[in-house]
């Protein structure tokens, strides 16, 4: 959000289980409608992931990140 305020379009990736916390931060920061991309199980919320898990998730998330940052989401 602070990057957005500084003029840099940004996207934050959040685990579904942490979305409530992320939205709470957004709300107290006055950005209730800040968009997040979410990750869900089988990826666990704490990112102690194997390299294979990282690569697989990156492959899944990349198109979503691109769409969000280019306004095509």
């Amino acid at each position: 959000m602070e990057l957005e305020w500084a003029g840099v379009p940004s996207i934050a990736i959040v685990h579904e289980e942490m979305r409530g916390s992320a939205q709470a931060i957004a709300r107290v920061s006055g950005c209730s409608d800040y968009g997040f991309l979410t990750v869900n199980y089988p990826w666990v919320p704490i990112a102690i992931w194997s390299k294979e898990e990282c690569l697989e998730l990156a492959e899944i998330m990349a198109p979503k990140v691109l769409a969000a940052l280019t306004g095509q989401a």
């Binding site: 990057l3 500084a6 003029g7 840099v8 379009p9 940004s10 996207i11 934050a12 990736i13 959040v14 685990h15 942490m18 916390s21 992320a22 931060i25 997040f36 919320p45 704490i46 990112a47 990140v65 940052l69």
Partner: peptide, 15 residues
Amino acid sequence: RLTEEATVAITGFGG
């Protein structure tokens, strides 16, 4: 550097 050089940014939230 981020605010001056980056055109877009990606972050994570959690922990």
